[in-house]
Each structure stands twice: as C-alpha cells, then as structure tokens.
Amino acid sequence: MNTLKNFNPVVLLLYFVYVLFISIFSFNPILLASGMLGAVLYCLVVSDKRSVIKSLSACIVILLAVTVTNPLFSHNGKTVLFFINDNRVTLESLIYGAVLGLCITEVIIWFKCFNLVFDSERFIFLFGKISPKLALVLSMTLRFVPSFIKSFREINRTQKLIGNSRRLKRYLNSFSAVVTQSMENSIITSDSMNSRGYGAKKRTFYSRFRFTLSDALFLIISTTLLALSVIFKSDFTYYPGFTFSEINAVSVTGYLSFIVLAFIPFIYELKEGIRWKYLISKI
C-alpha cells in the first residue's frame, strides 16, 4: 500500500526537495542519520523487503568506500591516527568521509522513495505543463531502460537453452538482437503515434489530481518544519577539530523539526495502515 500517492504531486515534489535540500546543505551527522532512517523506514513499509536490503547493502559498500578513501586524500585534522609518506591520516577526515558517504547514500535512498511515489502519470502531470514533449520523451526513455534489460535477459536465457554456451559470444548475440528489437519497436511506436494523429494538434491531457484540503495541510506542515529547521540550524565543522553548536533548546528545536519532517512519510503510512486494519476489523 502506498497512501502517500494520494497527495498532489506538486506538494510531494516540494516535500522531496525540502528534505534533500536540508540533508545535503546542512552536512550535519545527526540530521543525515535521521533523514536516512526516515527514508529507510518508509521504503521498508511501502516496498518489498528484499529490494530495500539490496539497495541498502549497495549503500553500505559506497559508505565504506568513501570512508576509507577520504583520509587517504585529505590530511587535515588534529587527531593523528598514523602517517603515510609524511602525510597524516586523521580521525577527523575519517569521520568526514563517513558523513560524506552517509550524505551520498541518503540521497540514493530518498530517490528510491521518490521513485516509489512518482509513476509516469505523476511525472507527466508535473512536467507536462512546462513542456509536454519533454515529459513524454522523458517518460518514454525512463521506461525504455528496464524494458531493454528485461528483453536482454529473456533473449540471453533462450540463447543459453538452445545451447549457445560460450559466454561472451552469447552476450554479444543477445545484445545485437536486443538492439535490433528496440529499433523495430521504435519504428512501430512512431508509426502508431503518427496514425493516431500525434503532432496534428496541440496535445491535451487529463489529470485527476486536485489540490485538496489535506494537500494544503501537508504543504503548510512541511514548509513550517523546513523553516524551523533552517532558522534553528546548528553548525558542525570537522577541520581542524570537531566543533558543534552547543545542544540547547534552540538547536534541539531545529533537530526535532527536521526529524519530524523526515519521518512524515513513514508516520503517515503507519497511520493509514492502522486505520485500514481498524476499518477491516469493524466489518
């Protein structure tokens, strides 16, 4: 179940922009970790666990790689761990690398959430007004990649079954077959579009998205939380030594408002799930 889809796409897009904006520009480990947690929990509730674990394990590899690489190239920092060729390897740059990795992986997970919410219909609704042609082309190309991979796998499997056992040759054969197939498909698509009169008149589309009261509420809440976390932001610097703004009522307000902002999709999904169970139990 994905109840977040009920909201207006514009409001949802704004929400994702807010979250990504804060998590990228704050570069604060607490905010990054809470944003990551919110995104992962939402993915776990909405999509199947296997795909979440798959992308999380990829994220952990990226995180570790960035954490290990950063101290080898950046030698700033007060706490020396050891020396390589007269350059110091410091704790500060190790932590900085970890936070950088967290930042990258968080963006990846939030984009996964974005993909869970935005299908091609919402995409065309969002960008169709600005440029209908671009929206159409984008949605067609985005669809092309998975369908290309799918038909490649199918052809490759068939080739294997009919006894094409040499791996490289099989891949090459399947690839050329898939390219030929996709070219044929594109001709068919363009013929079909032509015969249905594409380009003859200005393109119109119907969208059933309206701006409702709950959309307004969602927009107001998320914008307020964004404003609060920007106004009460706390600084966090890494070089030469760690310094952060002291934890008081102001900074805690900033942190809490971002945490609530990041957890909105998860909380909403949970709330709707409980409501659904409750309504079923009454039948």
């Binding site: 020396v80 761990l81 050891f82 020396f83 390589i84 060729n85 007269d86 110091r88």
Partner: peptide, 10 residues
C-alpha cells in the same frame, strides 16, 4: 611504496 608510521614513531 608507502611508508606507514605511527604518530609517535614519526
């Protein structure tokens, strides 16, 4: 090709 030393040794 790298020489790795602890801070004290260095």
């Amino acid at each position: 090709s790298c020489s790795i030393k602890s801070a004290d040794d260095y």
